[in-house]
């Protein structure tokens, strides 16, 4: 029983990271119709910078903020290249993000090398209903929940958020009322970058980061996001949490490391079911 609770909370912590990556994918896809394959790179870059800043004596909080800011700026940059030119098709933009994701490997290796990095998070072990788990997992959950609440508020209660939702809902009507949909695309990429960065910064103390950690993040994040047709943040949150818990349970009771396989099976199942129902993912998202 205490094992189960431990796995559940750990799974929720890991899942929260996936959910953040997923919500970044969703934020970008809703507005631009681009599946951003560079999403994992935001997390890796943010985590690497945070590790360096902490190493240089920058205090916690500020170092993490620096990492998230780098994620946001990288998001803006990727957005500028991928959707900055008017008339770029989402398919072309997708390939561009894939290329930029690979380019990020080179940058990361040049700056930080190819060895795994980590840094201490919340120290110690927490006791929860008899279960013992790393206290840092609780921080991940404690940060992620308000971030999602904040996003819900931003998208429905602020004008820039409404404008982003408007672009997602009806791009043509957005143009009719004078919203610059290209700029909104850049804003979405910036937001996606910050969310990806936050995922990396939060999870690195419990899962060390290497330049190619983005693969696991993007697979899990995409699997979570695709549950909601890449357009529904709340479903992406639920999907991320579910995936985190499923993987932790699989690893805990099944033994071995099937984490990525669990995500891949889920993702493929969802995509095949959706494709059989309504056509390709891009179509269901409309």
């Amino acid at each position: 029983m205490s094992d189960l609770i431990g796995y559940l909370v750990t799974g929720l912590g890991i899942g929260a990271g996936f959910a953040l990556v997923a919500s970044g994918l969703v934020a970008i896809y809703r507005v631009t119709r681009v599946v951003n394959f560079a999403q994992g790179a935001f997390a890796v870059l943010a985590a690497m910078l945070t590790a360096s800043l902490l190493g240089a004596g920058v205090p916690h909080g500020l170092a993490e903020l620096g990492g998230v800011t780098l994620g946001a700026l990288t998001g803006l940059l990727v957005g500028a290249v991928a959707v900055g030119r008017p008339g770029t098709s989402p398919g072309t933009s997708l390939i561009v993000t894939l290329g930029l994701g690979v380019l990020a490997y080179a940058v990361e290796i040049v700056i930080w090398g190819d060895q795994p990095r980590s840094y201490p998070g919340v120290p110690g072990v927490a006791e929860l209903a008899g279960a013992r788990l790393q206290a840092h997992y609780l921080l991940i959950i404690a940060v992620t929940v308000p971030v999602f609440a904040l996003m819900a508020w931003f998208f429905t209660r602020t004008d820039p958020g409404r404008a982003l939702s408007a672009c997602a809902s009806n791009r043509y009507a957005a143009q009719v009322v004078g919203i610059d949909v290209r700029r909104m695309g850049l804003l979405a990429f910036t937001l996606g970058g910050a969310l990806g960065g936050l995922a990396g910064v939060l999870t690195t103390p419990v899962q060390q980061v290497t330049f190619d950690s983005d693969v696991a993040l993007i697979v899990n994040g995409f699997a979570a996001a695709v549950l909601g047709g890449l357009t529904r943040p709340v479903v992406a949150l639920a999907g991320g949490l579910l995936l985190g818990v499923a993987q932790t349970l699989a690893a805990g009771y099944g033994g071995g490391a099937y984490q990525v396989e669990v995500a891949l099976v889920l993702m493929l199942t969802v995509m095949i079911v959706q494709a059989a129902r309504t056509g390709p993912v891009a179509e269901t998202a409309r």
């Binding site: 429905t156 004008d159 409404r162 404008a163 939702s165 408007a166 997602a168 809902s169 009806n170 009507a173 957005a174 009322v177 004078g178 919203i179």
Partner: peptide, 16 residues
């Protein structure tokens, strides 16, 4: 319409 948005948000965006 911005179909996913409320009537009030549709109006509000008209004043963008």
């Amino acid at each position: 319409m911005f179909g996913d948005l409320t009537v009030d948000d549709n109006l509000r965006l008209g004043g963008w």
